[in-house]
Amino acid sequence: MSVADDLRELSLGRAAVYVVLLLVGAFYLAPLESGLMTAIKTQDAFFSSTPFVPPFGDGFTLEPWYEAWAQMQGPLSDFSGALYNSAFVAIPATVLSGLIGSVAAYGLTNLKWRGQAGVLMLFVAGMFVPYQSVLVPLTRFWTIVGLQNYLAAVPFLQSRVGLIELVVTHTAYGIPICTILFRSYYANFDESMLEAARIDGATFTRIYRRIIFPLSKPMFAVVLIYQFTQVWNDFLFALVLVSSPTNEVATIALNKLQGSMVQQYNVQMAAAFIAALPTLLVYVLFGEQFAEGVAGES
């Protein structure tokens, strides 16, 4: 489309709409933009310049990123770095709750029995429970279970006991949203196709493995992306369940860094971007699926 066409299309009212939308867009991006600009400025530069203006001359530096990286992860060979720890929690928890949610949704959709609505209601309500209301029993539960005793034979896992607790906890609390998302997807499946398989004598398990699961791929993308973001971004569970400093996840490390480098805004901003990098990447690459997951919450 040429510029001339563009101009023709614009009446004054439409121009106003575009201006408003652009300003709003700028508003949404402003914290990120000023954060990014601050992260590539020296201490002197960000104290003396306007936050959103890019640095010039010797005001530019990548030093904050090196420093933030050292705090958030350290060398890539360090497998107890905060980013690794977050991945150690987020990846298994996401895959587990996704798989479990898909199976549960199958049991609650394509097979019919009464009382289903009641069970579903418990799943839906489970999405909305404020974590504070389970926090005290949750810590008590893991104290009583004493997971580290069972893991004595595997030192690698025993030293990560807090993270394993996080994986199980996140999986359990992720099941409701995953189930609901999958169920809304399965509810639109063609009934007659499943009926035909049933008449052919396929068992329920077989129908799931051969028909439902392969057809679930698009929804798995939505669920995994959404759930990964949720688990990676979690702060509260990690705050109460992880005690060992070597098991700190990214959000906890970021909060600690912010507390110890109070005036070093450039390092803080760089660290914030490093902690957010996986979720930002996922969002930029799969924004569509993320939006769909978000919509499923409603």
């Binding site: 709003v24 959000t251 970021l254 914030a272 957010a276 930002l280």
Partner: peptide
């Protein structure tokens, strides 16, 4: 752009 902030952790947005 509008939905982007929601993909960020509260910890990240609080620091921003």
């Amino acid at each position: 752009i509008y939905l982007l902030p929601m993909s960020l952790s509260f910890v990240v947005t609080a620091i921003f």
